[in-house]
Every structure is written in C-alpha cells, then in structure tokens.
Amino acid sequence: MTTPLLDVAKLSASYGRAQVLFDLSLQLHKGEVLALVGRNGAGKTTTLKAIMGLVSARAERLTFSGFSLIGLPTYRIARLGLGYVPEDRRIFTDLTIEENLEVGRRAGRPGRSPWTPERLFKLFPNLAGMKGRRGNEMSGGEQQMLSIARTLMGNPDAILLDEPSEGIAPVIVEMMAEAICAMKAEGVAILLSEQNWAFAAGISDKACVIERGAIRFQGPMADFLANHALRAETLGV
C-alpha cells in the first residue's frame, strides 16, 4: 500500500481538562473517501478540528503529504492542501456567495484544472442563481453547499468534511452525495464525519468507527456493512 496522504497516529485531544480523544489513529489515502462514523459526541468533530489545528492536541504522528502538522498554525495546514468544512458551516453571513468563494480562493497544484466559481456553480446548481445573495439569506442546505464550494476554491488535495447531511432536506442530501462523488472523481480525498451513516455508506470506500474518542474499527466499507454485530453495537439504539 502507498504511503497515506493523511496519517494520524495516537492523537489525543482535550477541551480544557475534559479529554475527548484517546490515542486515535487513522489513515486517509489519495482519492479515497473515508467515513468516520460514530454516535453523537463520540469525538468525530474533535478529530477533524484537531487535525486542522483548531483544538490543541498531542499526537505521535500527524502528517499530510509527508509534512508534519504538529504545531503548525491552521492557515499553514490549509495551505498544504487540506481543506476543512465545519459542521456548523460557518458561512460568512455578511458576505455574498461570490465573496464567500473569494475568501477560499487559493492557487492549486499546477497541471490540475483549478476550481472556479463557474465549475462550482455547475456542481452546485442551486448556488448559481443567487451569486449576489448574502449568506444570511440562505437555507441550511444552500449554506452547506456554499461551505463545500468555498473550501474547494482552495484546490485542496483532501477535505475534512464534518456532517454534511446534518439538518438538511433529504433531496439536498441526495445532491450532496452526488457532489461528493464528483469531488472524488476529481481526485480529492475526503475524510467524512457522519452520523447519518446510511448516507456515509453510500459514498464511502472505507469506514472508521469511532467510539468514545477511540477508533473501534477501520477497514473497507463492505466489511463494516457485512459485520452486523459491530454495526448494531456501535450505531444501533
């Protein structure tokens, strides 16, 4: 197997004195979609934030494209080609859609066709009709699309995607799944945190089950789907 694009070994993180992650390890390879599944509060969001340098964390190894991320400021991590779409989307609500995209704009690797607003509007047709609209005049689903599009404007090699299906209408979830497949087709690797794991199952190559801040299972999605006992235990009510 090739060296992973994103390599996390023994990651621990705390909020104040409350420890949330315990020696968590995972690998994301080029062009694959890895679903981080687990219940509410299991530590999915914290994992993504810790990788992005947004919460203080310790790790034995934390590399992206061979560069260590430990101690790097968030903007340097982003510039290495790692995009981040937060759970609460964090659209700049005072800015128009076009301006939101502008904040994310960053030249990509030479030789790859860069993401442009035009291409993104094809990917997310809902956004095309309202370029001049402000972020605070958008529905949750539209904000989610904009948040992903904004991150794509930085031409990342991989994206940390936190709960893209949360709180949005089923028809938009369907569109989101298509967009993720399109991104994957462009060679963008995706680390997906998902609670709606049926959605995750439909689009992911691999699954990584997180429980109480530690990894319970990592392997191909098919294996996880086949393992009924594990599925019921980790996700079932």
Binding site: A198, F199, G202, L225, L235, G236, V237
Partner: peptide, 23 residues
C-alpha cells in the same frame, strides 16, 4: 419500548433502503 421503536431506529440508523443501495 424506545429501543424497539421502528421510528427511533430509522432516526438513528437512517433509511434502510440506502443500506442495500450502497453495496
């Protein structure tokens, strides 16, 4: 009762059709 409620299972496990579609 809650553990066995189909609506609850749906809410937590999602659409069971999606499961079959994915593999």
């Amino acid at each position: 009762d809650v553990r066995n409620d189909p609506q609850v299972r749906q809410a937590y496990l999602g659409d069971s059709h999606a499961l079959t579609r994915s593999v």
